[in-house]
Computed example of a mutant assay.
Amino acid sequence: MEQNDSPGFYTPVGSRRTFFRWVTAAASSLIGLGLAVPLVGYVVSPAFRRREQRWVDVGREADLPVGEPKQLEHVTTLRDGWMETKSQKAVWAVKQTDGSITVFSPICTHLGCGYRWEQSDRTFKCPCHRSVFDVDGKVMAGPAPRPLDVLPAKVEEGRLFVIYKEYKAGLSRAQEI
Rank of each mutant, 00 (worst) to 15 (best):
V75I: 14
T76A: 13
T76K: 12
T77Q: 10
T77E: 12
R79T: 14
G81K: 07
M83D: 09
M83F: 10
K86V: 11
K86N: 15
S87N: 15
K89Q: 15
K89V: 15
A90M: 14
A90N: 14
V91H: 02
V91R: 03
A93T: 02
D98T: 04
D98K: 04
D98R: 02
G99Y: 09
S100E: 05
I101C: 09
I101M: 05
T102K: 08
T102E: 00
T102C: 00
F104G: 01
S105T: 04
S105M: 01
P106A: 03
C108S: 08
T109H: 03
T109Y: 08
H110S: 02
L111W: 01
G114M: 10
W117E: 06
S120M: 04
R122S: 12
T123V: 15
K125E: 04
K125F: 10
C126A: 02
H129D: 11
G137S: 05
V139R: 00
V139I: 09
M140Q: 14
M140C: 08
A141F: 08
G142E: 10
P143N: 08
A144V: 00
P145W: 01
R146E: 07
P147D: 09
L148C: 10
A153T: 13
V155Y: 12
V155F: 13
V155K: 11
E156I: 11
E157N: 09
R159T: 06
R159W: 00
L160Y: 07
L160V: 12
F161T: 00
F161I: 01
F161L: 10
V162K: 07
I163N: 01
K165F: 07
E166D: 15
G170L: 06
G170Y: 06
G170H: 03
S172C: 06
S172A: 12
S172Y: 00
R173E: 14
R173W: 00
R173S: 12
